[in-house]
Computed example of a mutant assay.
Amino acid sequence: MSAPARGEALPRAARPFVTFATLLRANGFSVAPEQTETFVAAVGLLGPRTMADIYAAARATLGPPPERREDFDALYRAHFLGQTLSGLMPGPEEDLAYEPEEGGDATFEPEELNEAGGEATAAEALSLRRFAPLGEGEALRRFRRAAPDALPRRRSRRFAGRRAGERPDMRRALREAVRRDGEILRLPQLRRRTRQRRILLLIDVSGSMKGQTEASLRLAHTLVHSAERAEVFTIGTRLTRVTRALRHRHASVALAAAAVAVADWDGGTRLGDALAAFLAVPRYAGFARSAYVVVLSDGLERGDPAVLIGAVERLARLAWGILWLTPLASGADFAPETEAMRAIAPHLDRIGSAASPARITHEILEFARTP
């Protein structure tokens, strides 16, 4: 497949593959135009059925050097799977990579590999997570049925005809008058429509939350398919948007896609940096505007507490309400113990329990019903 001549538009189907080669060059890889043509042709010949086919074609035709294989894989996941990048080998054009963590100043070097998780740490541990093929629990089934009516709504700018409205619908009144020779038996009314508020779910995937991660992702999948508008991000040492992966109808396929997209499973806890990166991207910050924000995290921040405080402060100004659910909240008399949680508590609308999926769904629906 030859490259398009100068002035000729690039076919839409080929754009992701050509721009991937551009992304590699921007991050210091040597990719010749002939290699780009070969990559596009290889994808066309494979007729890829899975993302693994595209990855194999990229590895075979673009030939990343062995010492930069990890950087190549990270750029591939960022470009084709939407994963946020944390840090590559330093280069003059590193900021051209897709969806950078703009809230952070420097990358963190990993300490000892945290294979098992279970502790709050600032070290970054990159790994692949696999989810067991469990069925959907009764709590999630009840949540799926209740969520469409229980989740908070807001008034839209659009009007619709109603029997008891806020103002007369003069357009319909004139149409009826024409049909009835000038007589109007009932004055049509208009009332503002309502629409569901966007739900923003932030899931802590650090090592200290390892026991709750799978249940949280299953809840996120249910929420994406129950709410009119929902966005899901994972936070740990990195910020990753997993909404697209969770939109698949089958939970097992959706969770497998999320497992590939997220690289910092069971790693360190830098919530402040992740939230700051979220708010630094205008598109992401727009997701939080007038939204119902739910954070699933124990709040055991190992980074700078000032960064977390500033990020939550700004998030509170944008959001309709913030519900922070932690597995450490065992009773109604729970009080935050860490410095960071005590500092952000005044900016949260409620701190609830995340002891079980049933408790989480109860908290989400109860807070949604509060006036």
Rank of each mutant, 00 (worst) to 15 (best):
G104K: 12
A3P: 10
A230E: 04
E111S: 13
R238W: 02
V242M: 07
G82M: 11
V18S: 05
A368V: 02
E176W: 02
E112S: 12
L190V: 06
D181F: 13
A160D: 09
D298S: 02
M89G: 14
I360K: 00
L323V: 09
M341K: 02
F80S: 08
A277G: 13
A164C: 01
E136D: 11
A311Y: 01
A355V: 11
Q196C: 06
G87L: 05
Y76F: 15
R238L: 08
Q196D: 09
R172F: 03
G310D: 14
A335R: 15
L10V: 14
T234R: 01
V281C: 08
I364V: 15
A120K: 00
Y55I: 00
A319V: 03
E93K: 10
T61C: 15
R157T: 10
A355P: 00
G268T: 04
Q189G: 06
D169A: 10
L88Y: 11
L134N: 07
T234A: 11
T22C: 07
G310L: 03
G7A: 13
R68A: 14
P110H: 11
A58E: 03
V295P: 00
A173L: 10
A123E: 04
P100W: 05
I344V: 15
E366C: 05
R342G: 03
T22F: 05
L126R: 15
E34N: 11
R12S: 10
L300C: 00
A116V: 15
Y292F: 15
A340N: 01
R350E: 13
R191N: 04
L134W: 08
G118P: 12
W320R: 04
R191A: 15
Q212E: 08
A227P: 07
E166Q: 15
R141G: 10
A368L: 04
P16R: 08
R68C: 12
T269W: 00
A258N: 04
V40Q: 09
E183A: 13
P188H: 06
L328Q: 06
L308D: 00
L62N: 10
R314Q: 14
E99T: 09
S86W: 04
V253W: 05
F80T: 08
A254L: 01
R244T: 14
T107E: 14
S297F: 01
L46V: 12
I322V: 14
R162M: 08
